[in-house]
Nucleic acid binder design. Structure first.
Ligand SMILES: [Zn+2]
Ligand SMILES: [Zn+2]
Ligand SMILES: [Zn+2]
Ligand SMILES: [Zn+2]
Lengths: 203, 203
DNA sequence: ACCAGAAATGCTATCGGATAACATTGCGGT
DNA sequence: ACCGCAATGTTATCCGATAGCATTTCTGGT
């Protein structure tokens, strides 16, 4: 079953991946050691690039670091702003070229529904991934449900369609924000969510 | 099984929905009677709006008609252009307000990965839908796989995440474009598709 | 028929996202 | 030192989207 697969990859219970990917196994916790998320991400990125013989330049590394400042997808122009605060000369192409590189290397993902970018939780892996994005705090979690991909690919194939890329983005309320309110825990389509800020926002 | 469900909703074989939704049951055929797609869509839209006591004004109707000129997601500024060709005064807000209305009424969908809009194949239904979009000819087909939605909702729920909206967009090659080339029929992730135009392009 | 009030549209301006085109810099290999 | 290429800087421009306010059009009540 599909839920088993998810349970293996992203356990609320299991701990197989906890050491490898501390902050992102479940939805990011409010007070996790995010410094470690950043450090791990940058280390893995360096390893991946080394391995592939591509250059993780200072600019690219810095953009990746900015993206990893939290688990919230970040717009290109926000990245730009922060680069400028570093004192660095920067224009849109600067950011987009760095992003292009990071996307190619599988170090970040683009969230189409937000025109924003977020760090990849499995750097270097080749997968589009699936994303849970909280409409309240903006945090996101990446899933990599291979069975889900296969099911969609298989069903598309039965219509004669050859799948190349999957965009799967789920918006809703994360556990923390859900708790901070009194909202129901069910799939309610199109509630036209009004409010936006919550008490405790995960990093 | 999931494939059964799809088979019911979008048969390559069945014909339950064929009369209701001639051009969109499978991937849109090259020479289907698209005039009928348009007529049906506009009729249904009128019925839906009548039923809900909302006004399908001339502008809104025209925008819907423009969107339904084919099965390819259309950008807001392309719509704008065509409105102007009608001789009508129009600026971006004109288009976006019409689109907002059509989205609210479930008459069109927004394709996040393309920043574009496409007619809904089941007008009035409340569902985000799933979309197969051909990277070669641009045509798209809407699926409404309730089981897929349920699986994702269920798995998200097991992580404590409350689903509100699903964005599921599949890009790849439609049957016609696939045939017009010699490409494999398998899920190849991230082939960085280069080319773009094909011989026979579905409407 | 008339007249609010509301809904829809027109209009101007502005913002954010993304890319094209070309110049310059920096780095590795010879 | 030199060359060639990859990376970055720079300018300009395009597309997507929305804010805010003026005007028109519709609707319901008198
Ligand atoms: Zn973290
Ligand atoms: Zn949240
Ligand atoms: Zn059609
Ligand atoms: Zn095609």
């Amino acid at each position: 079953m599909l839920s088993d697969n998810i349970a293996v990859l992203f356990p609320g219970s299991g701990m197989l991946l906890v050491k490898q990917d501390p902050g992102n196994v479940t939805f990011p916790k409010n007070n996790h050691d995010h410094g470690r998320c950043i450090a791990v991400a940058l280390d893995k990125a360096a390893a991946v690039c080394m391995d592939r013989g591509v250059r993780l330049t200072e600019l690219r590394r810095r953009v990746l670091e900015i993206i990893w400042q939290n688990h919230k997808p970040l717009g290109a122009y926000s990245i730009l702003e922060q680069l400028r605060q570093d004192g660095r000369a920067a224009a849109p192409p600067t950011v987009y070229r760095a992003l292009e590189f990071l996307l190619e290397q599988g170090l970040v993902h683009r969230i189409a529904s937000m025109n924003a970018f977020v760090g990849c939780s499995r750097p270097g892996h080749i997968s589009d991934g699936q994303f849970l994005i909280c409409r309240s705090c903006g945090s996101s979690t990446e899933l990599n449900d291979g069975k889900l991909e296969k099911v969609i690919t298989r069903n598309s194939g039965s219509l004669g369609f050859t799948v190349e890329h999957l965009t799967i983005e789920v918006s809703g309320l994360c556990p923390h924000c859900r708790r901070a309110r009194g909202e129901p825990a069910q799939y309610s389509n199109c509630p036209v969510s009004g409010e936006d800020s919550s008490g405790t926002e995960p990093t």
